[in-house]
Amino acid sequence: MTERHVLLEMRGVSRVHGHGPTEVRALSGVDLRVAEGELVAVMGQSGSGKSTLLNLAGGLDTPTAGEVEVEGAALTGRSVAGRAALRRRSIGYVFQDLNLIPTLTAAENVSLPLELDGVRRSKARKDAIHSLADVAMADLADRFPDEMSGGQQQRVAIARALVGPRRLLLADEPTGALDSETGEAILAVLRKRVDRGAAGLLVTHEARHAAWADRVVFLRDGVVVDTTDASSDTSAALAAGGPRHL
């Protein structure tokens, strides 16, 4: 298999708040790579450093040590404006609270980041429809958020996160506001979207949702304590028929 393009690379990343006796180590020496086609989940209890990790990966915060690269470009060491430019070009976010702009249609919500970046309206609209089609939402392109279910709104948010050239998706508890079955459907959409050529970093406290990832990284007190892979051997053996032992 050929080496896949690494979209996010974190090397020895630490984040310390304050100093001296009040110092809080939110993250310590984290190494993490997410390649195209990969969905990586981060699990850990509250205060384990999950959100800090996601904020550093997205350039919303800067590490006190270590390096963060997005599509091969260093996020660390850039000015605030430089980080913002890299974010707009490469990174999309999905949050728990379905934060679409209520006065814009689905297509307008998705095309907005492109228009803000100077893309012509007609081209932005075309890219938005394309991105909505990727999450099976093209039919509802002209609906407003209050005319859609929570699950549909979250699909639109995923389309917005990965519209145009952006290929790194950072998701913070994206199923938190949804019922169990709808949450599961969102994971299926996220998974499919990543398989089609994106990279996803998913923060969740739900094991059932983390299990959709290729790798699960466990954080405790700001340190990566474990990483699991889905063992394709077991899957193959189980899928090969015969008695279906679980």
């Binding site: 299926a188 983390a210 299990a211 699960v216 405790r220 304590v225 474990d226 063992s231 189980l238």
Partner: peptide, 23 residues
């Protein structure tokens, strides 16, 4: 606890792959 949690999540990943195929 962590070793057991990692083992169980790895098992969940396998089950989820199978479920995707079943779906």
């Amino acid at each position: 606890i962590q070793a057991q949690r990692a083992a169980t999540v790895a098992h969940l990943q396998d089950l989820t792959r199978l479920k995707r195929d079943a779906l």
